[in-house]
Design a protein around this nucleic acid. Structure first.
Lengths: 130, 130
DNA sequence: GATAGGGCTTCCAGTGGCTGGAAGCTCAAG
DNA sequence: CTTGAGCTTCCAGCCACTGGAAGCCCTATC
């Protein structure tokens, strides 16, 4: 398979696939003409990576997950630990965003949004921290 | 004021303050010795920026907000529009994270996390997209 | 007056995870 | 034989900093 087909079937752009090779996540073979020659296993790995990325795992986590996936002697506890840590990080991000959202939403509600200059949003931003 | 004091009083690291000067958000004067010489207005601006950043506004938004703040002929509608757009973006991010969280949390719950290799998390990552 | 230290300066490079674009080779179709 | 799509590499840029090196400035102490 050439990169175009793999891109289509994995859902990842060619650029990303090349990048993943660059950083050593996959090692496709090469045809005589210099083109990357992907096997089914490469495609499978890329799909794995794509899915892990949509779940928000870092590239580093992906690397580890992929190696665990290929390691038949893995312990599911290793996988679970990574996932739990990631879950915690997600929760923290959500909490942070909700805090932002809360403040911002109050400010937006308080702002008339008309042609006059006075604006609670700017007032808040410019007020001294207590 | 030197940068150290401004850093402490604004809560921003010196590196960040220099960076903000670099990209033209502030224009502190200079002392004869070459040190940056900050006035109260600079400090005020930096505090404004710091607060806007913690609310998640992009640097570009911050630049606009700052110029609106200094523009006495502004209309609060301009400010509100920026804030509302940002609010929408935050909502999208939260939705995305919650989707991740939902899937991931199911997978984590389903994984025994023991010494055995079989793991629903890896199974899910490796399964073909429907 | 020498020295030690902390604070300040600039500049370069790296972070994460791609993405855009240029220059050039290969391949299939007409 | 030409055209165009697809592939190759490499370099640069995104965002918002951050780390580190090399070197100047200022104050305090001996």
């Amino acid at each position: 398979m050439n990169i175009g087909e793999v891109a289509e079937r994995s859902g990842l752009p060619p650029k990303t696939i090349r990048y993943y090779e660059d950083i050593g996540l996959i090692r496709p073979q090469r045809s005589e003409n210099g083109y990357r020659a992907f096997r089914e296993t490469d495609l499978h790995k890329l799909a794995f990576l794509g899915r892990a990325r949509t779940l928000g795992f870092s590239i580093d986590d992906c690397r580890t997950l992929l190696s665990l996936y290929e390691d038949e002697a893995r312990e599911s506890a290793q996988v679970k630990a990574i996932a739990e840590e990631h879950l915690t990080a997600i929760d923290e991000k959500i909490a942070q965003l909700r805090a932002m959202r809360g403040t911002l939403s109050n400010l937006v509600d308080a702002c008339r949004g008309d042609h006059r200059p006075d604006c609670p949003i700017l007032s808040d931003l410019s007020k001294k921290p207590a």
